[in-house]
Amino acid sequence: MSERFFLYDDAVESKTRFVSFLGQRQRFDLAIVQTDRFYGKYLVLDMQGNRFAIIGQDDLEEPGYLEHAYQLSEEDADDLRSFLFEVI
């Protein structure tokens, strides 16, 4: 068997927040991970939808970003965006 070639193998400190809240039409179960790895952005995991994205303030202001990343309707994305603006 050939030797494994790693592109990187880092262990980093992180802070994780687990939060669940109800939007107007759906429930959100999120894990929000803060680390130095993503240049000040957060790794936001949607545990119900099995989707994730690296998100910063600039991404929240980008039209259609959350809709695409999490496969949400505009209304549901607005609920998520409103919450993330408070915590990111």
Rank of each mutant, 00 (worst) to 15 (best):
S2P: 15
S2R: 15
E3C: 03
F6Q: 12
L7F: 10
L7N: 10
Y8A: 07
Y8L: 12
D9C: 08
D10C: 02
D10S: 05
A11T: 15
A11W: 09
A11R: 14
V12W: 05
V12M: 09
V12R: 10
V12S: 06
E13F: 06
S14H: 05
K15E: 13
T16H: 09
R17C: 04
R17N: 11
R17T: 14
R17L: 13
F18S: 11
S20G: 09
L22E: 10
G23P: 01
Q24M: 03
R25C: 01
R25V: 09
R25K: 15
Q26N: 05
Q26G: 02
R27Y: 04
D29G: 09
D29W: 02
L30R: 09
L30G: 03
L30E: 09
V33A: 00
Q34T: 12
T35L: 02
T35H: 08
D36F: 07
F38E: 06
F38V: 03
F38Y: 15
Y42P: 00
V44P: 08
V44S: 08
L45K: 04
D46Q: 12
D46K: 10
D46H: 02
D46G: 02
M47K: 15
M47W: 03
M47N: 14
G49T: 08
G49A: 11
N50A: 00
N50H: 06
R51V: 01
R51L: 12
F52G: 13
F52E: 07
F52P: 01
I54S: 08
I54E: 10
I54N: 02
I55A: 01
Q57M: 10
Q57E: 12
Q57D: 11
D59A: 09
D59P: 09
D59Y: 07
L60E: 06
E61R: 15
E62A: 11
E62T: 10
P63F: 08
P63Y: 11
P63C: 03
P63R: 11
G64D: 06
G64L: 11
G64Q: 13
Y65Q: 04
Y65A: 07
L66Y: 01
L66S: 05
L66C: 04
E67M: 12
E67G: 05
A69G: 04
A69E: 15
A69T: 03
Y70W: 05
Q71T: 14
L72P: 02
S73L: 09
S73H: 13
S73W: 11
E74H: 15
E74T: 13
E74Y: 05
E75A: 15
E75K: 14
E75M: 08
D76K: 01
D76W: 05
A77F: 03
A77S: 13
D78E: 12
D78F: 01
D78H: 06
D78S: 07
D79E: 12
L80Y: 12
S82K: 15
F83Q: 11
F83V: 08
L84R: 02
L84H: 03
F85Y: 14
F85A: 10
F85K: 15
E86N: 11
E86K: 14
V87F: 07
I88N: 13
I88M: 14
I88C: 13
